[in-house]
Amino acid sequence: MALSSPARRGSRVRRQLPSSPWLFAAPGLLVTAAFVLYPFVSTVVNSFTDRRTLVPGDFVGLANYREMLHDDQFWVALRNSTLYVVGVVPALVILPLLLALLVQKHIPGIAFFRSAFYTPVVASIVVVGLIWVWLLDERGLINSLLETLGAGPVGFLSDQWLILLSAMAVTVWKGLGYYMIIYLAALANVPRELHEAAAVDGAGAVRRFLSVTVPALRSTMVLVAALSSVSAFKVFSEVYLIANPTGGPGGEDTTLVMLVQRTGTGLSGRVGYASAISVVVFLITVVLMLLVLRADRKDEAQA
């Protein structure tokens, strides 16, 4: 029996046809290298040049980054993308958890409700965005319902801050089902004995939620916070559709990715400057991830 230790068995299976491993891995490696890693390196390199779509450009050192510091559009976009994280992440950490608790019990018809709540996740963000543009229209469903209640029409799609708020609501609406499923899987792993013990001790539903469920789900909540903050910071489509391609009144609703798209594409695109903004987007998403993970570790130390 000693002869067939797992390592030996494995090595026998693996040993043959020396060229095939690379043949197997080649398509994936080539695509990843050509369309992810090379563009990444090229983004960093371009950010130090004044390259344009049709002009190769020269090395300009830190000029793009210096320009960014004095570019009002950049600061507006950075503010909006940051506000987006602040507005969306708490909602996407808490609401899907409550939703998961609502659909957790196996009562008749629950599978239907779970699927229905997931439907917005399946739809394209463009479809979702256009549905909400129509709902939030000055004469759309929501305003006409408000009108029957005696309230005047609200400019969801015309006021600078309401546009941003509406887009955040759409992001939350579309994300609820996705994070609900993540929480649902995590809830299944909460030891039932803890709930039973707490119930025996006379803890009510709310108390059990705060003292048993939340601590047990802490790492899942951190995961959701990390995923949702990174994707919120990169927001593009919702604001692009709900404001308009130029970012609402006076461009005041432009987000960072919208600025990248507007600056860097088209025949007169400023590839160099757009690349510098892209590098900032990349660095901030990395920092966001690290911050969330660090908060996790700090919590753990306190616990």
Binding site: F35, F40, T43, V271, S275, S278, V281
Partner: peptide
Amino acid sequence: VPAESIIIAQF
């Protein structure tokens, strides 16, 4: 690497 941050270079 977030796709959004390399989209110009991909273009």
